[in-house]
Design a protein around this nucleic acid. Structure first.
Lengths: 168, 168
DNA sequence: AACTGTTAGTTCAAAGTTGTACTACACTCA
DNA sequence: TGAGTGTAGTACAACTTTGAACTAACAGTT
């Protein structure tokens, strides 16, 4: 082992480059398409949709801000803005946390629930149209497993918050 | 065929849901990590990097605005802003297009080239660290092929602009 | 040449995102 | 009990993105 700072990097093969570009380009266009269809069909952004989904999966439709932020991989600051906007729309409410006076609980309202229930079928259909049904079952499973490995690598495998089971 | 507007949607199986979430979560975290490392190491955003890459691959380091926008899947408006910022940094220049007086050519400067040459090894290393080397060769190839199918589905297969061969 | 429809690119204002700084509270350990 | 350290969430200001409106120029028609 040397301390050479100008070590050569192993370049990508032409094949790898092709795959990497397909991944970047495909993912960018896919997320853009899903975003547009969800916005058009329901008025929600995919981020707002994700928030509602996560809240809907807890017993009391409530999560701490930090948990929510970790779940959907947003910065704290970004989540504060998103939740404020959703609160203005009446989709969620924020309440101080009893156990920890620093904390804030975001809770889904009945309206939030209704909006999610109305939005989900359309969004699922979009995901089918542009991703799931475009691939074979094996391809889609391989995609999921590969990206799960990437996620585990990036987050150190962590995917749980004390007290509340979260999606892994 | 009916005109029933409330047709039931085929839901995702639990497995499909898991894969879909892994894909979303993994991709979001991966792109965020790459963005941060590139910014930290070179001061470039991944979008600026992409612009430089595309320009570097043409014989005269030049592309029309619209071609560039299509290549990297950005809106026209967004590309205008990106190129303006890059022009202020001296990475590209904009020149009127001779063949079509409506058009504008974006050309990479020597400085842009140098910045790209300096940035590329670091970025490739990031891509290796967090994606390519995390997966087996087969997994990575499967990922690329799947996302290529998604891209083709979304763009109607188009991936070429008259006159200039672009990445497919 | 004038008319129509289309394409290229920019501009504008509104909305979203980012990172830092800040306040408040909690935890630890002397 | 209080000093020091860490965590939760928000506020702020700078920056980026979005979509619609706009100007200019091409292309085809009559």
């Amino acid at each position: 082992m040397t301390t050479d700072t100008s070590t050569t990097v192993e370049w990508l093969t032409e094949e790898q480059q092709t795959h990497w570009r397909a991944f970047r380009g495909g993912a960018a266009r896919l997320f853009a398409a899903l975003e547009h269809e969800l916005e058009r069909d329901t008025g929600l952004s995919t981020h707002e949709y994700e928030v509602l989904v996560r809240l809907s999966e807890t017993p009391d439709r409530t999560l701490r801000m930090a948990q929510l932020a970790d779940n959907i991989a947003h910065s704290r600051s970004r989540l504060t803005h998103t939740i404020r906007r959703m609160e203005e729309q009446g989709l969620v409410v924020r309440l101080p946390c009893v156990e920890d006076a620093r904390g804030v609980n975001a809770t889904m309202t009945d309206k939030g629930w209704e909006v999610l229930v109305a939005a989900a079928p359309k969004h699922v259909q979009s995901v089918r149209d542009h991703l799931v049904d475009v691939l074979t079952e094996e391809q889609f499973a391989a995609l999921g497993e590969a990206m799960e490995a990437v996620r585990v690598h990036l987050t150190g495998g962590a995917c749980h918050v004390e007290g509340v089971a979260s999606e892994c």
